[in-house]
Design a protein around this nucleic acid. Structure first.
Lengths: 199, 199
DNA sequence: GTCTATAATTAGATAGAC
DNA sequence: GTCTATCTAATTATAGAC
């Protein structure tokens, strides 16, 4: 940590991490650049220096979110003995664990998906479409679903069933008394949803 | 439409309708009072006159959303012959049709559920809790589920599976090519989710 | 690369005329 | 009850010192 490029990367990383958290809970308009700077422990002017604009910082935050998704989707060494339905269930359980650890992805999907503006178009074309194509492939091989017209329904039903509880964690705690952050609760949800979609 | 109180109610109604739409797509911070006033075709100063503050206007918008939910939840004359599982499926189908016609409810749940601030607490205590209690009753009688610990999981899985596709309608159209507004698509989702939760 | 200071907009809320 | 005009505060983005 001596050179300026290392220092730059360090600062950029702190800003993006703060931006992911702030955008995730406060939304794009609710998270001010001053608030993000304060969370990152740096000055507000530095955000413009490193990212030029709030929207470009937001894009960097989105990139970070999808980077952790890619990490989570790295295929596991499949035990070749287990049957395809059990493999499908395990994929869903892993998806639930990811959604619990990273509620940002679902919040982003809902926040941006509501309107047809520029950010939504960029998000779909850049990150969401490849992810959706991967989902369709996996669906085709593991569930052997001939009805292609059901793919969007399955995609959104699964994403919603998996993620909502963790995306609204503060609300869930107040409404049901259940803390979605607890490991036991995550596993219960993983099992519930896995059996729901693959009985 | 002559007296001042009638005029007042008319104006309030227009403002609240515009607020529901604006908050729903732009979020609380993204929707400015000037934008809402423009949509309602009235002056920005009038919002303060009728609602005192943006937050109180937001509460009026939430009240309107839950009023339409109450309307949709009015029990139908049950054909006593049909079996309870088919009745449960029909309840889910009605829920899907409501979510398609009023994506505001789900968007509100996610937008406010992310943080633990004052608006979320008010929303849960005032409107969400009675709704959740009603869900638990219906779950207990129609699915005869003994496991009470699964109630939160079922609630959030169902809400997410039912509503997400319609809440992110612009995104869904761009990502999948499917228009969730079309009646045929709504019915397909209704049937898909109903069979998913009540096989 | 980082900070302080500030410009330019835009926000929610208020005052007063009609 | 409604509108125009305005106040105050907060926002993003910029300029310049270090």
């Amino acid at each position: 940590m001596v050179s300026r490029v290392e220092q730059s990367e360090e600062t950029r990383g702190k800003i993006v991490a703060a931006a992911v958290a702030a955008f995730s809970t406060l939304g794009f308009h609710g998270a001010s650049t001053r608030e993000i700077a304060a969370r990152a422990g740096i000055n507000q002017g530095l955000i413009t220096y490193h990212f030029r604009s709030k929207e470009l910082l937001w894009r960097a935050a989105v990139e970070k979110i999808f980077a952790s998704l890619r990490t989570a989707l790295v295929p596991l060494p499949t035990s070749p003995a287990s049957d395809p339905r059990e493999q499908a269930r395990e994929s869903i359980r892993r998806y639930v664990r990811f959604a619990a650890a990273h509620p940002e992805l679902f919040r982003l999907m809902v926040e941006e998906g509501k309107s047809g503006d520029r950010r939504m178009q960029w998000l779909v074309d850049t990150y969401l479409r490849p992810f959706y194509e991967g989902f369709k492939e996996q669906l085709a091989e593991s569930l052997s679903e001939p009805e292609q017209s059901l793919e969007p329904h399955a995609f959104y039903a699964l994403a919603g069933a998996v993620s909502l509880m963790f995306a609204v964690e503060p609300e869930c705690r107040r409404l049901t008394g259940l803390n979605p952050k607890r490991k036991q609760v995550v596993e219960q949800h993983a099992d519930y949803v896995a059996r729901l979609f693959v009985p």
